[in-house]
């Protein structure tokens, strides 16, 4: 029998944590629902006159709807890069786990050390490399570097070792399945929870990689939403109208992340847990 105190204490701690994490989002929601004049002189945590729809309307029409374009860009950059990057990481990690070839450990260790190199440190060298190819300020200058995900390779290898039995692969080979076919039809199914985890990690990493587009892109139509909102925010002093657009835009921009997490969270839990017991 657990005493009521013992039961309520964890609830209290968790409640406090939930509050701590939700208050900023609540603030954002409230702030985005206010008109500019009420924003500065009403209670920051409670609604004033509800003008969220006016703000949204203004946000989507400002500068020919460039904000929608940014959202679309972000979805393509992050969704596309996360999807492709996950496939690449899975193939790479699977190969490192299931095939024996000279230099395997060396490659794996190098990939692992890549985890330690922050993406921000790579932005400027990447810019100089892309400049050599005259390819800065293009979609590809942000998309291609975003595909690389050493941590995903690491996770995929760990998970492939744990969840894909060698016997199964041998059986597939005996049945005449080629290696590629085995990977896509058998192994990926077994690795699926890990792939979702990698996808989510990758998705968040690309979404948050702010410096790369900042350095690479000059054309506003190519910006991801983070950079777009940032560039508006730097102009708030001169054009105060932008403040409400930045706030409303920030609210809208977290929606894809929330959706991604809600939809994939059951796989997410599954994937994290299996890494832990290894």
């Amino acid at each position: 029998m657990i005493s009521p105190l013992k039961r309520s204490l964890p609830m209290l701690v968790m409640g406090a944590c939930t509050l701590y994490f939700l208050v900023p989002i609540w603030w954002l929601l409230v702030a985005a629902s206010k008109s500019r004049s009420q924003f500065s002189n009403t209670d920051p945590l409670w609604f004033a006159d509800f003008s969220l729809f006016d703000n949204l309307n203004e946000l989507f029409s400002y500068r020919d709807g460039v904000f929608l374009r940014w959202m679309l860009n972000s979805v393509v950059y992050t969704g596309g890069a996360a999807l492709l990057g996950t496939v690449l990481a899975a193939m790479c990690g699977y190969a490192l786990a299931k095939y024996r070839f000279p230099g395997r450990e060396a490659i794996f260790n190098v990939v692992l050390s890549g985890v330690l190199v922050p993406a921000t440190a790579l932005a400027l060298p990447l810019f100089l490399i892309f400049s050599q190819f005259n390819a800065t300020n293009t979609f590809w200058s942000v998309f291609l570097p975003s595909l690389v995900n050493p941590f995903g390779v690491y996770l995929a290898r760990i998970y492939a070792t744990a969840s894909v039995p060698d016997e199964l692969l041998e059986a597939a080979r005996l049945d005449g399945s080629g290696e590629v076919r085995t990977f896509f039809t058998v192994s990926t199914k077994l690795m699926f929870p890990a792939l979702v985890t990698i996808f989510l990690f990758h998705f968040v990493a690309v979404w948050n990689n702010f410096l790369l587009p900042l350095i690479m892109l000059g054309n506003e139509r190519l910006f991801p939403v983070t950079l777009g909102l940032y560039s508006w925010n730097t102009q708030v002093n001169q054009i105060p109208e932008l403040r409400m657009l930045v706030l409303t835009g920030a609210l809208v921009s977290i929606i894809p992340l929330v959706i991604a997490f809600l939809l994939l969270q059951r796989f997410w839990r599954n994937g994290l847990g299996s890494g832990a017991i290894k």
Binding site: N219, L227, Y230, S231
Partner: peptide, 25 residues
Amino acid sequence: VQTGPNGNGGTYQNFFNQLKAGNAP
């Protein structure tokens, strides 16, 4: 024309990078 964040918000740094790479506007 291309627009982005204000000077100290990143555009000056971009100018310096672009000058280094030889592709400044």
